[in-house]
Design a protein around this nucleic acid. Sequence first.
DNA 1: CCCGCGTAGTAATTCGAATTATCAGCGCCG
DNA 2: CGGCGCTGATAATTCGAATTACTACGCGGG
Lengths: 351, 351
Amino acid sequence: MTAGSGRVTQAQVARLAGVSQAVVSMVLNGSDSLRITPETRDRVQQVLRETGYTVDIMGRRLRGGTNQILGVFTYESVFPSGVADFYRPFLLGIEEEAEEQGFDLLLFTSGGRRDGRRRIYDQGTNRLRIADGSILLGRHNDPQELAQLVEEQFPFVFVGRRESPTGPISYVGADYVAATREVHERLWALGHRRIGLLSVTEENEPTLDRRSGYEAASRKRRRPPLVFLEEDPASALRQVLDDGVTALLVESSAMADAILACAHDLGLNVPDDLSIVVLGDADPSQQPHAHAVPSTATDWSMFRIPRRDMGAHAVRVLVGLLKNPKTRQLLLPCSFHEGATTAKPSTVHIH
Amino acid sequence: MTAGSGRVTQAQVARLAGVSQAVVSMVLNGSDSLRITPETRDRVQQVLRETGYTVDIMGRRLRGGTNQILGVFTYESVFPSGVADFYRPFLLGIEEEAEEQGFDLLLFTSGGRRDGRRRIYDQGTNRLRIADGSILLGRHNDPQELAQLVEEQFPFVFVGRRESPTGPISYVGADYVAATREVHERLWALGHRRIGLLSVTEENEPTLDRRSGYEAASRKRRRPPLVFLEEDPASALRQVLDDGVTALLVESSAMADAILACAHDLGLNVPDDLSIVVLGDADPSQQPHAHAVPSTATDWSMFRIPRRDMGAHAVRVLVGLLKNPKTRQLLLPCSFHEGATTAKPSTVHIH
DNA sequence: CCCGCGTAGTAATTCGAATTATCAGCGCCG
DNA sequence: CGGCGCTGATAATTCGAATTACTACGCGGG
């Protein structure tokens, strides 16, 4: 059968069958099958079976010009040891869709990190280029690296909205603007008239989007926006209450937890005295129909980020990009979860 | 810079730099660096940077070269949607060590599944060959695919002990034999003299190893082995008790839970009336210094499978294999966790 | 009788990178 | 002044599969 060297090639099969390599290739691919005598075809197939020939994917893809590999670049470890597994829900969708589309996934784990972060450009070369295209994940982003990527015209898709001054880039994000607007609408429908936003000073895209959605909703209802940027929860809560706010949108669940604790200290009841909505997910690792919320934790009213869908769509956009290199932006809707921290405003509230 | 048509080749770089393709290759590999004028080298490197050239892994591997890429093949999804995330702890170690060793990871997600399982040889192609070598994970295993891999002399390492009739294969496993023996020893030291093993009828490697460890320990103490294969927990518990067993080793935590429930129904106390040890981990996704065990769950006495270490060592063994193609088998020790389900045997026990 | 055409293949080329063989130019020695 | 050896680069080959160009053969019609 196979020689000691380990692998059977089409040429070896051809020699054994007394034909040329081209014939073996034709038999395998069925192309031009009319041109091959049934006897010849049977003889070749016989040898193919005997030798246990398998296609060497390298030769095939070398000719094809594509390697059917999508890169996945994350600024941190993909499989972190920390409790919260930030990337998993995204990767779930990415893997699923990559399988669907017939691509393998290359995780860039080589190449030294500098200052604890991975880099796209290691020693001046873009390692992502090994793959046909790449998906970028991660809260960090390096504008300079992004700019260079754009300039190189390498096909890539960001998971999460990203803007680059250099030019438009492709991304698949969550529609924070619409989601925040919807939250505002719901609170308004419940009867709230003073709805505040407790934001953060960082100016990344998600924060800007949430603020923009909030402001749009406020404008629509002809109410002045009530944006708070206080970092200390106790002081933030005081400002909020002093302002007569009855419903508060909070950026992070950590901040929401802190606010809730302060409210309890003041003898306030949530949601009766103050409704609170978290603008995002409580726990990134719980996705998406998470029912197994620990009973001790607060059942926050919030919207859910469709991480799995974002991953899947990112793959689809990237594959589309390979055929037609035209940048594409996609925002997916967030679903609202009605938790236990929203209610009608208390009518006896004094301000 | 780069043409719209995709990737830059050495030939294109060579043309731009006014040299031959061979020179570009030499500059890249640093081989025969003495033969190239510093000026020429600088000029080529300049063009390399400008064009953003990266090697085509297909071309390189076709020629027999290596790419610093390790494959990771799993029979199921790497990022499963199910609750228990079986692969994660392994992958955590794999990623960590791959990063340490400077390798990228290629997840084989392309190629359709058949009967819900992935295949190494899809449509007569071995996709693993894209990588320099590969790590195989998963409870399933297809002896025929394994045999073919061995015959191809492709470097691979299995996570978990695997035997193949074709010849020795490399693996990194957990030492179930020693771990089970140690459990027996501990129970013996506590005073137990009738120690039983509740096993399963499947005959995969881990099960065989546990049984073998149990039998070795029994032989050492000159006690007849008490192996039970009953699947129904109630009936199993009855048999065990009828046999005067005071300490029971159980294969799976699911079975252990069922046994515990039955014992409670019979008014028995665990561990006072019966000590129970689980031969493995309760929850695959909790690793390894898991302290966050839900308070409602039983604190089983058990041994922990060093999944993260197994992943890391698999990478190390594989990298070793690339340099020196000699199969290697490695078993890592399990650590024992003294839970609340073991105690001295009750002296008033009647049999 | 010979050209044309269809048949059943084979030879040659392509893909990208690495390696080996080769070659041109120069200085030096006999 | 011719040949030898060294240097620095180029031409050619290799890997495996797919595809295109080509060829040997037989047969029929003009």
